Simulated assay, not measured.
Amino acid sequence: VGNGLASFDVNQERAARSLGASPLRAFLTVTLPQIRIAVMSGMLFAFITSFDEVVVSLFISSGATSTLTKRMFANIRDQVDPTVAAISSMLVVLSILVLIAAQFVRRDGVKAADEH
């Protein structure tokens, strides 16, 4: 996200604010569309990284609640079940689909910019 913000032109948001947009509206209509690919990538990496935090999940979950990472860890430890492999495959496919969708959105944005 930092890289996306580094290439963002602050003058465009200032122009929106000078034309009467509220700070929230200026962010949602000017800033966010320009950095949406960086935000989506950051969300995807944070989601994938959260599965690496099994130790934290083991300490913060109680008996009544259980996170997916804790269940996956217990499933691997206690029994041989293809559920963990299926979840892992689904996460990899989901990650690939999100990245492909981001590329299509980016390509459409470049085409639209070239037409103007």
Rank of each mutant, 00 (worst) to 15 (best):
Q79H: 10
I100L: 14
T83S: 07
A6F: 02
I48H: 08
L58A: 10
P82T: 13
L97T: 15
R14E: 12
S18Q: 02
A101N: 15
T67H: 08
V80G: 14
K70S: 06
V80F: 13
T29R: 03
R17F: 00
G63L: 02
A113F: 07
A26D: 00
F104I: 14
P23H: 08
N11D: 12
F47K: 04
S41C: 13
S89K: 07
D81I: 11
A64T: 09
F104C: 07
A102G: 14
V30H: 06
I35F: 10
A85W: 03
V10Q: 10
D52C: 09
T49H: 04
A15Q: 02
R17N: 00
M40V: 15
M43F: 13
V110L: 14
L94I: 14
H116E: 10
A6C: 02
V1Y: 03
V56F: 01
A102W: 00
R25M: 10
S89Q: 13
V105R: 02
L58I: 08
S18L: 06
I37R: 11
L94D: 14
T83V: 10
I48F: 10
D114G: 03
T31Y: 04
L99P: 02
E13W: 04
A101F: 14
F51N: 04
A112K: 06
F8S: 08
V1E: 05
F73A: 12
A64Y: 02
M40A: 15
D108F: 06
V56K: 00
V39G: 06
V84N: 11
P23M: 03
F51L: 13
T67F: 05
L99V: 15
D81E: 10
D78N: 06
R107F: 06
P33N: 14
F104L: 12
M90D: 13
T29C: 03
L99I: 13
S22R: 06
A46V: 10
A6W: 00
T67K: 00
S22Y: 02
A38M: 05
M72L: 15
R71N: 09
N11L: 12
R106G: 10
F73S: 08
V10H: 07
F27Y: 09
S88L: 15
I35D: 07
F73N: 01
H116N: 09
Q103T: 07
T65H: 05
D78E: 07
S66P: 00
S61R: 01
M40W: 06
